[in-house]
Design a protein around this nucleic acid. Structure first.
Lengths: 111, 111
DNA sequence: GCAAAGAGCAACTAAAGGGTTGCGTATAGG
DNA sequence: CCTATACGCAACCCTTTAGTTGCTCTTTGC
């Protein structure tokens, strides 16, 4: 069982990886399921292939993406599991908020 | 209607704001609904009040948090709307991925 | 067998981020 | 009043990050 602090750190790093316009764009290209090469992912980005590569490494480090070598090119595909995890966390936060608000409201209204 | 690029940029900045361990900790303290002062939020952080203030500004800039002045202290409270929006986006991404996978699978199996 | 395509690696730069310290200001309360 | 509390602002430092350039290596395909 990972410590609570480690969980926090992991979650933060996933959000950090998602916290970039370019990387969100890359994810969008990968949501259709088909693994894409770096050259392919670079098209239409105004960036160098190297820059895109770095972004992909960031995404790969947090597990949102993984790569498979196919001949001379390495294809990247999406792994939705960390995304689902992050999504559930946000759901949890807003849910806790709702519960807390209801509780406070009941308090004010004298129950 | 904001442009698609602007939407992307906004979303990215929200994720970026969430992409920090300290800030996730601050959010956690605010999920119980009660607005807290900066001094209060600084307790148990190993950080300076100034550092915490900066983090709060980051959260405030993306609308995840807002402040209300109360005498000599300014209290921060959570606004779950951007969080809900981010959550829905992640849900959308993983959902698209599921759909795409199903489609690819059907293709391979010859429909 | 050779040119072109697809990538990896390393060094470098500019800018952004996280953090601190120091100082000034307003409010609460004895 | 006068002190302690709660902040805001600004300057500064160090580290990380985004991006580029240049070079090398492997694979493709004619």
């Amino acid at each position: 069982m990972p410590s609570a602090a480690a969980v926090l750190r992991t979650r933060a790093s996933v959000f950090a990886a998602l916290g970039d316009e370019t990387r969100l764009g890359l994810l969008a290209k990968l949501t259709n399921g088909e693994p894409l090469s770096i050259a392919r992912l670079t098209e239409g980005t105004k960036l160098t292939r190297q820059a895109v590569t770095k972004h992909l490494r960031v995404l790969e480090d947090v597990g949102v993406v993984f790569s498979v070598k196919a001949g001379r090119e390495s294809r990247f595909a999406l792994d939705p599991r960390p995304i689902v995890s992050a999504q559930e966390y946000l759901e949890h936060v807003s849910r806790q908020w709702d519960i807390a608000l209801a509780r406070l409201k009941a308090l004010v209204e004298g129950t």
